[in-house]
Design a protein around this nucleic acid. Structure first.
Length: 434
DNA sequence: TCTGGGGTCCTAGGACCC
DNA sequence: TCTGGGGTCCTAGGACCC
């Protein structure tokens, strides 16, 4: 490779953010393990098989929108022989790690932004060479992981998002667009609708359009004062970024501020017993996540609610915060959460979702010790948790679990169309020859 | 019958303090 | 009976992201 990371090449003291985005990520993951799905319309559903969260190009062409409820589009999809999958997050997580690892060959400066996106810093590459470099990244990732990606390169993160979007949707760019090449950047901003700018959601888009601001170029030209007043500092930063002034750097793994575990039920739940089980289950997941991140939580919220869509009496509870001694100890989390649930539960409602949120997270290495628990007890607790975690990691989830979280999970979510765990379970490895 | 889950950031307003 | 201004912290709510 003729590109080097040498100091001599580091003369470009601008920024060059490359946004790498996996195309139709969940669908692409399914396709890696079943080549017959190529050229066929494919969708992947959200948890509980509720709505459509990933669509192949063919599925998009059929007019299936992002986030659409399954039941509305099921007839259309059956008529067109669309392949439908429940989400398989274990598989997608593994594939994501592979893609992210592959990117490390090209730059030491990487921010993993989401399961299917990463920002790279490419300022050590000659501006005129950046798109050629990006093409090599793209080919390498496809070859090493089977996942197709698109890359947008620009002096700010916001512009790199826009470049990425254009690279992905206009075939002429073939998946890579660098705004450092000789283009009229304003022309690209003009074809970018305001709703498609990173940070502009449905509400803001409506307000902007009412003001006659229809695309990214219009927004770029809007007066600072008006932006500050109507879109707050977030909006001002966004506009500066559109003008090429970076307001955000690469963010390396920042410590988490809150952790959530929540799920919709497979069917509505009325009895407190089922709710208690689900809450214990979420407390268990929260404990695992906390220990993974070496954190302890100080505040806990319990959440449960009825459906937003069904008829009937509504009840929506987010109770908390309750203070807990900083902990990642599952039984303590279960006890605290169930206490809150017992206090706030009301019978005769059809609940469709429950969950737990923990806040105010501190590193487990310097938590304030509970004066009433002797050091020895705490060490025992930690040892037990570590043991349970390692058994569950080696022998599969819920090999060991707390009785409070129940054995049957009559309330658990549906996932009738899940693919196999091709790479995380020995029993489900793909067969080359049967 | 059927509509996801897990996050972050900003602002306004109230409580409280000096 | 009169009674300011400024700061901090917390929370709820809104908006956004993938």
């Amino acid at each position: 490779m003729s590109f080097t990371h040498s100091a001599a090449n580091n003369a470009y003291n601008d920024h060059a953010f490359a946004l790498v985005d996996c195309n139709n990520f969940f669908v692409s993951c399914e396709r890696v393990f079943d080549p017959k799905l190529r050229n066929r319309a494919v969708v992947v559903l959200s948890s509980n098989d509720g709505c459509i969260v990933s669509r192949s190009q063919e599925a998009k062409k059929l007019g299936i929108p992002m986030g659409a409820p399954l039941h509305e589009y099921l007839p259309l999809m059956l008529a067109h022989n669309v392949a439908i999958f429940s989400s398989n997050f274990v598989l997608y997580g593994d594939m994501s790690n592979r893609v992210m690892d592959a990117l490390d060959q090209f730059t030491p400066y990487k921010e993993i932004y989401s399961i299917d996106e990463a920002f790279l810093e490419l300022n050590f590459i000659d501006p005129a060479e950046r798109s050629r470099y990006a093409r090599i990244i793209r080919e390498t990732v496809i070859q090493q992981t089977g996942i197709p990606i698109s890359i947008g390169i620009a002096p700010t993160k916001t512009l790199s998002k826009i470049a990425n979007r254009v690279a992905k949707t206009s075939p002429e760019w073939n998946g890579v667009l660098s705004l450092y090449d000789a283009h009229n950047v304003d022309e690209i901003l003009k074809i970018t609708e305001v709703r498609d700018i990173w940070g502009i959601g449905r509400r803001l888009a409506l307000r902007l359009r009412a003001e006659g601001i229809y695309n990214a170029y219009d927004l770029k030209c809007a007066p600072d004062k008006w932006i500050r007043k109507n879109l707050s500092v977030t909006g001002l930063r966004m506009v500066l970024e559109l003008r090429g002034t970076p307001c955000a750097e690469l963010a390396y793994r920042s410590p988490k501020k809150s952790i959530t575990s929540s799920r919709s039920f497979g069917r509505p739940v009325e009895k407190i017993a089922a709710l208690e089980e689900s809450i214990a289950h979420h407390a268990t997941r929260i404990g695992e996540k906390l220990r993974e991140e070496e954190l302890c939580a100080r505040l806990l919220f319990v959440h449960f609610r009825t459906s937003y869509f069904r008829e009937g009496p509504r009840h929506n509870v987010t109770e908390g915060p309750v203070l807990i001694v900083p902990t990642a100890h599952t039984p303590k989390l279960i006890a605290a959460a169930q206490k809150v649930l017992k206090r706030t539960f009301k019978p005769s409602f059809a609940y469709t979702k429950s969950g737990i949120i923990v806040n105010d997270l501190v590193s487990d290495s310097h938590i304030q010790q509970d004066l009433f628990v002797v050091e020895e007890t705490r060490e025992k607790e930690e040892k037990l948790m570590r043991l349970i975690d390692s058994v569950n990691q080696l022998d599969g989830k819920r090999t060991i679990f707390f009785g409070a979280s129940g054995a049957n999970h009559s309330w658990s979510a549906k996932h009738d169309r899940r693919s196999q765990n091709f790479i995380s379970s020995w029993d489900e490895l793909p067969r080359v020859r049967a």
